[in-house]
């Protein structure tokens, strides 16, 4: 007993954390699947931008299916406006594609590594389980940021190429300078990344309970769809504030002038709550699960 407490007090040798994080990033961004998914997401704003120029006429307001998603109706304004395109594309992808990308990262992080037997490798070197979760959460967060940044960049470039540099204005009709416009897109991207961290944290938590990465992705997919359905049912409006995607349509608010911060703040806080719940469950499971 005394021996045990003494050895526990001595500092165990550890690999530097930055080295672990670097190794994790290298592993993530060497994986072909990650790169393919990121590439496709980055292409999305380009495709949307080209499609909008081909359609060219934004159409009468409310003429198309309205209110199907914040992103989609944002597209109405993305036609002649270089600022709207990246945000609209982010809003569109936030409905399903980006959460799937985050889920994939979360699935590979623990379930995938367990399936390959590689998680055991790190546990044996050893990496403590708390650090392991830290590294894994960092990796998932990095994928989310990479996806969002890639989309924002291609969105801005596509918008500028198609519409020209003078077309950066808000939904309220305020014309913005280029740095101000980039700031708005960065705000949108940061907010979307935070939402994706919440999705990724949930995926990570599920990931610690299974060794089938597909199961994680399917769960997150099913959850996203279920939450959307629940969110559409007015009879359940008491439940809506608990749904992670309740304020996802508020992404368009960054394009208003002045920015109404209410829903964006609420969404950000909600995401933080989800992160707290999911990561603590993931920690509990990871520290007790058999390696």
């Amino acid at each position: 007993m005394t021996q045990a407490t003494m050895t526990a007090r001595e500092r165990a040798p550890r690999a530097p954390l930055t080295r672990l994080l670097r190794a994790e990033l290298r592993w993530i961004f060497r994986r072909p699947r990650t790169l393919v998914v990121l590439g496709m997401l980055a292409l999305l704003p380009v495709v949307v931008g080209i499609a909008l120029t081909l359609v060219d006429s934004p159409g009468p307001p409310g003429g198309g299916p309205n209110g199907a998603g914040g992103g989609e109706s944002l597209l109405v304004s993305a036609g002649g406006n270089a600022l709207v395109l990246p945000v609209a594309a982010l809003g569109m992808a936030l409905a399903l594609l980006l959460p799937l990308a985050a889920a994939m990262a979360g699935a590979d992080a623990v379930a995938g590594e367990t399936a390959h037997g590689t998680l055991r490798g790190w546990l044996l070197t050893p990496v403590s389980r708390g650090r392991l979760l830290l590294v894994k959460a960092f990796g998932v967060a990095a994928v989310a940021v990479a996806a969002v940044v890639a989309m924002a960049l291609t969105g801005i470039v596509t918008g500028l190429v198609i519409n020209g540099g003078g077309t950066l204005f808000t939904l309220s009709g305020t014309t913005l300078s280029f740095p101000a416009a980039v700031g708005k897109v960065a705000l949108a991207a940061g907010w979307v990344a935070l939402q994706l961290w919440a999705v990724g944290a949930v995926a990570l938590a599920i990931s610690t309970w299974t060794e089938h990465p597909m199961l994680v992705v399917v769960s997150v997919l099913a959850g996203t769809i279920l939450f959307s359905v629940l969110g559409a049912l007015d009879a359940l409006d008491w439940l809506h504030p608990f749904l992670l995607n309740d304020s996802w349509q508020a992404i368009g608010d960054v394009l208003r002038d002045p920015v109404p911060t209410g829903e964006l703040t609420e969404g950000a806080l909600r995401a933080l709550c989800y992160i707290a719940i999911a990561l603590s469950i993931a920690y509990a499971r990871l520290t007790t699960k058999d390696g």
Partner: peptide, 22 residues
Amino acid sequence: RKAVAVAAAGTALGVAGLGVIA
């Protein structure tokens, strides 16, 4: 028990936060 405590504390915190939002 420690893991359960952490999970319970984190979850309670998060759910309380969601409750405040709601």
